[in-house]
Design a protein around this nucleic acid. Structure first.
Length: 272
DNA sequence: CTGAGCTCCTGGGAGC
DNA sequence: TGCTCCCAGGAGCTCA
């Protein structure tokens, strides 16, 4: 499932067909994801796409009539196809474009989101976007900001990195990878992390997310970009999914442990 | 407010 | 080949 790089790759994929396009019609095939799919979507006609945007792991399609807010959840993906192609299992929403293409929103586990905001409603004021922390790849995020937000917290640093009120876009895979790259144990609590270590963490978050985007994201199980191609960053994962294999730095065995309810991978020798 | 744990849902892979 | 069990990239909710 997508973390920030996978969402960014998806956005770039759909922008190839959506920029300058008009969405003629939207077919809603399954009414309920995490929230019900906005039923108004099925009644709309000829939405001219004005701007495409990513905020955290959300995709916003701005049109002349309002905004479509998408979230891919754990298993969602968007697929660009010719209009002759039939919908597949779990294609819950279909966007029919005026240029011969269509986009399927497929989400087997239905943890995703597809919500309509007419022009008089601001999606940024919605509960989904309002409380989000800074974007990691912008100047709005740095080590000092991270330090301020976590220095009073007793929660483990791994869980804090995944808290999207602190910084958005870091999910379970990249939390393990970032901590490994920074040499910091996922078990330490926020109030034990120094400013210098926060600077290191912020640097590694930016570096790893940007590298992953450039390689098409990480495909573990079922992620693929809008063109159906998998991401190749999985080859660059140092620890995630490599439990009981040798650490790429020191050769000692990589540990896995459930932290914050999810499996976490780290090297006890390299991370302190 | 904080932290810990549970929950939504389906499918793929491992193990028998 | 087929069954059962466990696990999965998110994030909101409840409870102490």
């Amino acid at each position: 499932m997508p973390e920030l790089p996978e969402v960014e790759v998806t956005l770039r994929g759909i922008s190839k067909v959506l920029t300058q396009a008009t969405i003629q019609q939207i077919i809603v095939s399954y009414p309920t994801l995490r929230e019900p799919i906005s039923t108004e979507l099925a009644t709309l006609k000829n939405l001219r796409v004005v701007k495409l945007e990513r905020r955290a792991k959300y995709i916003l399609i701005h049109t002349d009539q309002g905004v479509i807010l998408l979230h891919l959840g754990m298993s969602g993906h968007l697929r660009v196809a010719e209009q002759t192609e039939e919908a597949r299992k779990h294609d819950h929403v279909t966007f029919i474009l005026d240029n011969g293409f269509q986009i399927f929103f497929n989400d087997a586990r239905r943890f995703g989101l597809c919500v309509w905001f007419p022009l008089d409603q601001d999606p940024y004021e919605s509960s989904w976007l309002k409380k989000l922390g800074p974007e990691p790849l912008t100047d709005a995020f740095n080590g000092e900001i991270l330090f301020k937000k976590i220095t009073t917290r007793k929660t483990s640093i791994k869980v804090l990195l995944m808290d999207n009120t602190i910084v958005v876009g870091v999910g379970n895979i990249y939390a393990s990878e970032v901590l490994f790259a920074a040499g910091i144990s996922p078990l330490r609590s926020g109030n034990e992390i120094s400013l210098a270590e926060c600077n290191k963490l912020a640097t590694e978050i930016k570096r790893i997310l940007a590298e992953s985007i450039s390689q098409g994201g990480t495909t573990i199980r079922d992620f693929s970009g809008a063109d159906g191609k998998p991401g190749y960053f999985v080859q660059n994962l140092s620890v995630y999914g490599h439990g009981n294999e040798p650490c790429p730095h020191c050769g000692s065995m990589i540990k896995s442990k459930v932290i914050g309810g999810r499996n976490t991978y780290f090297c006890e020798h390299c991370q302190h």
